[in-house]
Design a protein around this nucleic acid. Sequence first.
RNA 1: GCUGCUGUAGCUCAGUGGUAGAGCGCGUCAUUGGUAAUGACGAGGUCGAGAGUUCAAUUCUCUCUAGCAGCACCA
Length: 666
Amino acid sequence: MTDQIKITLPDGSSREVASGTTPAQIAADIGPGLAKAALAARIDGEIRDIMRPLEVDTELALITSRDEEEALELARHDYAHVLAEAVQALWPGTQITFGPSTDDGFYYDVMAPKGREPFSMDDLPAIEEKMREIIKADKPLRREAWSRADLIAKWESDGEKFKSEWAAELPEGEELTVYWSGDDWMDMCRGPHLASTGKLDPKAFKLMRVAGAYWRGDQRNEQLTRIYGTGWLNKKQLNAHLHRLEEAAKRDHRKLGQEMDLFHLQYEAHGSVFWHPQGFVIWRELEAYMRRAIDGAGYQEVKTPQIMDAKQWEQSGHWGKYRENMFVVPDEVPSVEDDAPLVTGDADMMAIKPMNCPAHVLIFKQGIKSYRDLPLRIYENGCCHRNEPHGALHGLMRVRQFTQDDAHIFCREDQIVEEVRKFCELADRVYNDFGFTYSVKLALRPDERYGSDEDWDKAEEELRQAVIDAGMANEEYGWEELPGEGAFYAPKLEWHLTDAIGRTWQVGTIQSDRVLPERLDASYIAEDGERHRPIMLHRAIFGSYERFIGILIEHYAGKLPLWLAPTQAVVATIVTDANDYAEKVAERLRAEGIRVEADLRNEKINYKVREHSVGKIPNILVVGMREAEEGKVALRQLGQKEQQFLTLDEAVTLLIEEARAPDLKG
RNA sequence: GCUGCUGUAGCUCAGUGGUAGAGCGCGUCAUUGGUAAUGACGAGGUCGAGAGUUCAAUUCUCUCUAGCAGCACCA
C-alpha cells in the first residue's frame, strides 16, 4: 500500500502521492481554498467522488461550482437522494426506486407505504422541510461496494421489492455500490456524489409537483409517485429559473391562442380545433408557403378520400397494428327507429384515415409506372384522425384531427440516399425560414414490426448515410439515434423543435418503407422490363399544421413575423374628422395585399395604442388631422416606442417589403 | 389509458350548507382626445353533467365528463 502513484493536474504539473490518497487530500495539499471549493474529481475524464481513493497513475482535475454543468449534475443527483431519504424518514415503509437528475432538477419515484394514499402536493412542504434538515445536518455521503447477494438480501429484509428486483437483474459479478448518508440511510447508486449533504444549498431547491410514473416506464407495471423538484447551486439560480418558468407560461400557445382569438377547443369536439378567422390566416400563409416549397422541389399535390373500406386498412396493416387509434365507421344507413339499435352489428366497416400513405400508394398504382417516372413525389395536405389516448391531448400540439404536410416519394433503391439528403436540405431551409433551430434523431426498429431484419438493416443505414451526406450527423444538429422508437413499418428520421418550456416536439420526419409497397403490391417496370418494388419514403416538414402553428406561437411569444401576423396593421384615428382619411389609408394598404383594419372607434389614442399593442398588432398607423392634411401616417411598430412620420407611399413600400415571406425575399 | 390536481359571468379569479361577487371585456350616454387604460350608468351566471346525503347542495359524498402536470403512447 506504500506504492507511489503519479497524479497529473490540468496545468500540466504532476506530483507523486501514496496510492490510496483521495482527491480531497490532494486539494487540501494544494490549498485550503480549493479544499473547500472542490466538489468532485474528474479522473481520466470520468467524474468521481472526491473521497474515492486513487489507486493508479491518473490525470486529475478538481471540479468546483465554476464547472457549472458538472456541479449541477452532482447537486441534482444529491438532491434526489436527499428527497428519497426525507420521504422515508417522514413515512417509514415507503419504498424507493430511482431518482435521477433532469435538465432543471431531479425527481425520485417512490411507492407510498401500504394503506397510505399516494403522496400529493400537500405533502411537499413537509418533505422540503425534512430535506433542509438533512442538508443542514451535513451528513457525509460514503461510497461502499457490496456483493450482489448481500445487497439483494438487504433490500428484501427492508421490504424494498423494487430495489431488490433491480439488483437481481444487474449483471453477475459487477461491483455494486451503495452510498450511505451518515450511518442511517443508504441507496444503491453508481454515483458519483458530493462529499456530504451540506455541500447542497438548502435554499436552492424547490419541490414542484407530483405525478404518476410507471415502474420501469412500462404501463403494465405498478404506478409509483414521482416527486419532481428543481435544484440549483444557489438561491439566485433557483429564482432565475422560477422566473423563466413564469415567463414561459406567458408564451403558452393555448393562452395566446385565446388572447389573440386564433382558435378554440371545446369538449363536444375534444381534440379537434376550431380555427377562428385570425388563426386560420396563419394556416393559409403556411399552406401557401409549403406549396411554393414543394412546387419548387418537384412534388405533385393530390387530395385523397377521408374514409376508406376496412379491407383497405387490413391490407395496409393499419387494421392489425394501428386499429386502437382509428375511428371506425359502419358502412350502413343508421336506423331511424327510436328504440331500434342504431346499427345492426354486422355492418361492413370503414375507417377514417389516420394516415395518408395507403391512399398515395393507390394513386401510384393507377396505370403502369416506369423507372423513368421515379422518383415520383406525391404531396397532400392530408387531414387525418387518430383516436389518441385522452391523457395525451395537448392544445394544438397533440390533437385528434390534424392536417399533415404529407408526401410520399416512390423511388428506386439507389435513389433513396439522395432523396433523403435532398429532403434534409429542404427541411433545413424551411426551419431556417421560420427561425427555428432543431435537432435530428434517427428512430431505430421497434420490437413490434413488419419486415425482415435485412430490410431494417438497409433502411436504417440509408437514413444514417443521407444525414451524413447532408453534413447533419453531428452535435450542431442535435444528432442522436433512438433505439426502439421507429414506426412499425420503417425507421424514422425525426426533426424536433422545442416549445416555450423546453419540451421538444417532433415535427418533421422521413421514413424509408419497404413494407407498404409490398403489402399493397405497388410496382414499376425497370430497365430490364421486369416489375420491381419501389421504395416509399414517408415525409413531412411541418409534421402537422396544428402542431407547427402551436410551436410558432410559442417561439415568437405571439409576436409572429409580419408575413404570418393575422392582422398586419391597424389604422387608428385620433379624431373622428380623420375617419375618411383613415379609411383611405386602410383601403390603399388592403389593395396592396396588407391585412389591415381601421379603428375608427370613439376612443382616446392612448387607449387604442395600448389595446393594439397588447393585441400584438405589428404596425399601428396613427392618423389625426395633421396626417390627413399632409397625406402622411405616424407609424408605430410593435416593441418600439418611437414613431416614424412617413408619407402614405413610403409606409406602403415599407410594409410590403417587411410583409414578404422569407422564401420570396430577394 | 394511469396517478394527482382543477372546473363559479366572454376572460382572470374571489366566495358560501339557506340558489352568488370583483376587475377586465361587452352595451348605452357624455367626452373629439396626439402614442400603453376618459367618466357615469347598465346588461350578463341551471356555480361542468348526473346521482346521493340533507328541511335545504354551487358548497358535503359518489360516478361521469372536460381541462392542467407528469407517465405511457405519438405528428
